[in-house]
């Protein structure tokens, strides 16, 4: 079966992609990006780097912009999946949904309306096991946004590693970032044919949260 993978560029969608590739032919990546960071359905941070990630993966990318309202996002998703069906003949969609019933419900409904199979291989995965799996596969996942108290700026712009996980554990945060504690940008995982190199970035840091703005990046 040909499938498309909903792809934000973060660790969860990359893990979903990797799991899907074991069983199906992944025909394209699908990225729905919101106008602002208010979206509860799709990730926003660093989404402009998705083009480079798709190139690194050597997979076609369908990008559709969405408004911030729920109906806009669902409509954008529907449009993106229709394009994926027309251009790549996908019969199924793979998502990186983990715990959000809100997300899962909307993905399932749109897939059902379009007659597509919906796969959520990370669904209900234990937060520690999810991160362990990512580290086990050798993912390089850059922390692009961090909103954890007490906030430690030194982790911003660094790769997710055991020290970072230990920090999250100590402060009682969800270690997989499911509650929005952090966002990631994957610069390498086993399907990447080239590594994404972040050459320059700046930090925007507040009292209890911060994010990085990538200014220059290229494929190695």
């Amino acid at each position: 079966m040909r499938v498309g993978v909903l792809y934000s560029g973060g660790k969860d969608s990359n893990l979903a992609l990797l799991e899907a590739s074991r069983y199906f032919e992944v025909s394209c990546l699908i990225n729905v990006y919101p106008e602002s960071s208010e979206s509860a359905l799709f990730h926003y941070p660093a989404s402009e780097l998705v083009d480079l990630q798709a190139e690194a993966l050597d997979l076609p990318l369908i990008r559709v912009e969405s408004g911030d309202e729920e109906e806009d996002q669902v409509e954008a998703l529907r449009r993106a999946l229709e394009i994926a069906g027309e251009e790549f003949g996908i019969r199924g969609v793979v998502t990186g949904a983990v715990k959000s019933v809100y997300q899962a419900t909307r993905f399932q409904r749109v897939c059902d309306e379009l007659g597509l199979w919906c796969f959520n291989p990370l669904w209900l995965m234990d937060e520690v096991k999810l991160v362990e799996r990512i580290l086990g596969y050798g993912f390089k996942a850059l922390v692009t946004r961090l909103a954890v108290y007490p906030f430690e700026e030194r982790f911003l712009g660094r790769l997710v590693d055991r020290e970072f996980i230990e920090y999250l554990r100590k402060v009682g945060a969800n270690v997989s970032g499911e509650g929005g504690e952090y966002e990631t940008l994957v610069t390498w995982m086993p399907m990447f044919k080239r590594e994404l190199k972040i050459l320059k970035y700046s930090k925007i840091v507040g009292e209890s949260e911060g994010e990085i703005v990538v200014e220059r990046a290229e494929l190695a």
Partner: peptide, 15 residues
């Protein structure tokens, strides 16, 4: 039918 679905519908029960 599909093994990828086992990750969604069987793994959580197993865990």
């Amino acid at each position: 039918k599909h093994r990828l679905s086992d990750e969604e519908f069987v793994r959580p029960l197993r865990e």
